[in-house]
């Protein structure tokens, strides 16, 4: 660990626990995420990765069963203390594992967030749509049919559409939850290149099932297991074997369980 961290903390998490009714999904989580880094979260199913993402943008508000305790600061303010939930969520782009193309045209899918933000005028919206679709490596495939329904695209295209949509929010923090499970390897590589570029502008929280994806992209990586943080470290160091915990080593080497 670096002694003095000078970068801005986008997320500060302290002793966070998440439960659904009697079932605990996450406990005692403490970590910081700095601006302009890709922070990878790896771990098997049921380890609390998605619950963590849901807590960050206050999705617990939609689920009366979901209970979040502890401290979770986004841009220095407790997320639970934000006076405007919607403004918080507008700062945070989310890409879900399975693509959710909203039932509107491709153009409107991408222009939606910009319109919510108050962007007006066709020229300005056109610019947002083209820029975001290009970044999500989808522009060339859909530029001639922007008016067709977003839900009619193929799975991989829809996922890139949701990434374009998340980018159109111009988020401070982009959270990707296993974005590549419905995307082919070639496209995945193209999106990964885009993410490396995006890092200059925003912070990226990358939840992934693919250890190699974390290795390729993440500056730092955390391993979650059964609702707790096992280890957190610089990705290069972790993959070179400098792990504190044997379980991390096993997991990275695919010798787990």
């Amino acid at each position: 660990m670096v002694a003095a961290e000078t970068r801005t903390k986008v997320l500060e998490v302290n002793d966070l626990s998440i439960s659904y009714g009697p079932k605990t999904a996450m406990s005692g989580l403490s970590l910081d995420v700095y601006e302009n880094e890709i922070f990878g979260i790896i771990g098997p199913a049921n380890s609390g990765k998605t619950s963590f993402l849901r807590a960050i943008n206050r999705m617990d508000a939609f689920d009366s069963q979901m209970n979040v305790n502890g401290s979770l600061r986004f841009m220095g303010t407790e997320v639970s203390a934000w006076r405007n939930d919607y403004a918080l969520r507008r700062q945070i782009g989310v890409v879900f594992p399975l693509p959710v193309g909203l039932p509107m045209s491709i153009y409107d899918n991408v222009a939606f967030a910009a319109k919510l933000r108050g962007v007006k005028g066709k020229a300005a919206l056109d610019e947002v749509v083209e820029r975001c679709l290009t970044r999500a490596a989808l522009w060339d495939e859909v530029k001639d049919r922007l008016d067709s329904l977003g839900s009619q695209l193929s799975g991989g295209q829809q996922q890139r559409l949701t990434i374009a949509r998340a980018l159109s929010q111009e988020p401070t923090l982009l959270m990707l939850d296993e974005f590549s499970i419905a995307v082919d390897p070639v496209t995945t590589m193209r999106i990964e290149d885009v993410l490396k570029e995006l890092k200059k502008e925003m912070t990226i929280l990358l939840v992934t099932n693919l250890v190699q994806q974390a290795e390729r992209l993440a500056d730092r990586t955390a391993l979650f297991l059964n609702g707790s943080l096992i280890e957190i470290g610089y990705t290069d160091a972790l993959f070179e074997g400098q792990t504190q915990d044997q379980r991390t080593k096993d997991y990275l080497e695919g010798r787990f369980g």
């Binding site: 961290e5 801005t8 220095g76 303010t77 934000w82 405007n84 919607y86 918080l88």
Partner: peptide, 22 residues
């Protein structure tokens, strides 16, 4: 620890759409 001071108050504004929502 030198932290850039953030101004969440600028991000966390109750805008017109928040009031419409309520």
């Amino acid at each position: 620890m030198s932290e850039k001071t953030l101004a969440p108050s600028q991000l966390d504004q109750r805008d017109a759409s928040w009031y419409v929502d309520k």
